[in-house]
Amino acid sequence: MAHPRHGRIVDVLCADGSMSVDVLAERLGVTPQTVRRDLRTLTRDGSVTRTRGIAMATACVGTTVASRRDTDALTSACRTEQHLCEIAAWQVPHGSTVLLGSGAVAEGIGAALARRGGVRVVTSSLKVAMSLSIAARDVEDTRADIEVIVAGGVVRPSDSALFGTHIRAFLTDYRADIAIVGVDGVGADGGMLIGDLDCAAVLRMIIEVAREVWLVADSARFSNVRGFTMVGQIGRMARVYTNAPLPASIAEICDGRAIEVSVAVPMSEEA
């Protein structure tokens, strides 16, 4: 790591797990172009993994063999999830109002929408709103316009998610064209689960008020079901984006409800 900033980048990524180029640039007080140059260097020496605008540290101080395996699995899952987010975001019709909650899928969709523009985004996450605003500001093509509306509520310091009664009242005033959501797991009965009690009520409201809801979920969400709070049924979805054929029980539900299921071709490693 020739430059002191390189060590700072690795420290930040080790602490946060992953971060977009634009958010990392804001954190360090440098331009996104500078961060991209630094990340290319760190990627070559194996300190950082990059995928679809997201950077993750792979060489944290004190990393054990077991935790490195966990990091490799997380990196692979991150690549898959980001790939699915890219596919879903680029299928949003121009001029749509898109409703996003908080979490990795919301952040991935937000990053992809910022690159294509032409939409209005309503979000319950300050982190999503800020990354959208920064990315949109850096897009030179004036056609890539994007409007960001932030729902009001109580801010959770750990991830800048918004929740509470105020946000529920706010969301009732909107009828977004599309809500794009992620969950922790989908049970065999089609029940969609998350493990975040604070955000569960917000996600239920998002699913309720949107005209159409799309689910982005990699295959692990169906095979290794996590979460304990029900936020809705997969039968409410209009589209499902995943990376492997759905389990038989879920596929039957989707067929019966005429839900469009997109199974992504596995994404090759970045050059």
Rank of each mutant, 00 (worst) to 15 (best):
A88H: 05
R116K: 14
D138T: 12
L99W: 00
V98G: 02
Q91R: 15
I109V: 15
G101L: 09
H83T: 15
I87E: 01
A136S: 15
T97L: 10
H94M: 12
V128Q: 01
T123K: 02
D138L: 13
S96Y: 11
V92M: 01
G103K: 05
A104N: 13
A135D: 06
I134M: 11
S124P: 07
T97C: 13
S96V: 07
H94C: 06
G101W: 11
T123L: 01
D138M: 13
G101S: 09
L99Q: 03
A114Y: 07
V121R: 03
L113P: 10
A106M: 03
G95Q: 07
C85T: 10
A104I: 12
V128F: 03
Q91I: 04
A112Y: 04
T123Y: 03
G108E: 05
S133C: 08
V122E: 01
G103A: 02
E86P: 00
T97K: 03
E86W: 08
V105G: 05
A136I: 08
S102V: 03
V121C: 05
D138V: 07
G108H: 04
M130F: 08
L113H: 06
G110R: 05
R137F: 13
Q91G: 12
V121Y: 00
C85A: 12
A114F: 09
S125N: 06
A129F: 09
L113Q: 05
A89F: 09
C85Y: 02
G117R: 10
M130T: 15
E86K: 10
S102C: 11
V139S: 11
Q91D: 15
R120C: 14
G95R: 11
Q82V: 10
P93A: 04
A88D: 04
V119H: 02
H94P: 04
R116S: 13
P93C: 06
G95W: 01
A88C: 05
V128T: 15
S131T: 15
D138A: 14
L113F: 10
L132M: 09
A88Y: 07
L100K: 03
H94V: 15
A106P: 09
Q82W: 01
G110V: 11
S124T: 15
A88F: 07
G108Y: 06
L99N: 03
V139D: 08
R115M: 11
A89S: 14
I134L: 15
A88E: 01
V122L: 13
A111T: 14
H83Y: 07
K127D: 12
G118P: 09
A114H: 06
G103R: 01
G117I: 11
